[in-house]
Amino acid sequence: MEEQKVTTQEWKFTAKDIALKPEGFLPGHRACAGCGPANVLRMVMKATRGPTIVTEATGCMEVVSSIYPYTSWSYPWLHTAFETAAANASGIEAALKVLTKKGKVKQEHIDIIAFAGDGGTYDIGLQALSGAVERGHDFLFILYDNEGYMNTGIQRSGGTPLGAATTTTPAGSVMPGKMQNKKPITDIMVAHDLEYVATATPYYWKDMLQKVRKGLEVEGPAFLHIFAPCPRGWRSEPAKTMEYTKLAVESCVFPVYEVVKGKYELSTPSKLIQLAPQKKIPITEYLKGQGRYRHLFTPQHQHVVDTLQRLTDERWAKLQKKVEQTA
């Protein structure tokens, strides 16, 4: 493994500085061409501030980065089971405390990042995450949300949106894709009274990297929800991956915001839409071109699009209300 380069000096998040920062998630990984999560991991690792240990639940990003005998990590990295990213982070933190006490750890501080997919967060990893956060371990949990169990062949998860076709929610004459809406995972995390919870998309890379850094700086648990399109599972064009992470924000399907000590605040891209609501695009602008929603563009399923639009608008209104109420 490459020698870990530690930089404790404050990182300026300018495009060229980021471009020059050594990769934490190295080329040669086996993610599909145009993989959103792969870009997210690569960029997130550029926001680290010093010695960092990464742990990752089973899922696409774990698989593609650790196919024996290769590793794509230039940071210490531990694979853990599908359900245990947060439990593993808790253990790492506890172990570091003990080893520090025994004088076996020389670094003044070591950051811990836990990565998990939507399956490993919304579903099977939720109780481990809830417990770790309740116990107050100092780590940053990053959910890369590609809205399905992609590694095992595109099954639905609690993070799959209403109307999306997956292999377990196929679109046909009976079902219009998934019948339930996306679980509001960020609100669930906010309800744990964390100091820092935020959402981000890689299109707004600077916003995303600043949030990673803030999450690391918090003493105690922090949660970051990052939107990460999967061209394989979404049946979308690989070249459009970043474009979808922009359209998702512009349609308010995935608003970007922070919740700092319970106080909601819209981040600039979403704030601009709040200030100029005419800039909010219809969800069809975001849905079109994604094969997983193709069936919705038929008269038979028009009502699903209408419901999705209504649910999106309701969640956007609710979010703005929370911003107001906690101001």
Partner: peptide, 9 residues
């Protein structure tokens, strides 16, 4: 995994 993936093109 003992090798860096930069060896896997």
């Amino acid at each position: 995994s003992p090798k860096s993936s930069v060896g896997f093109m």
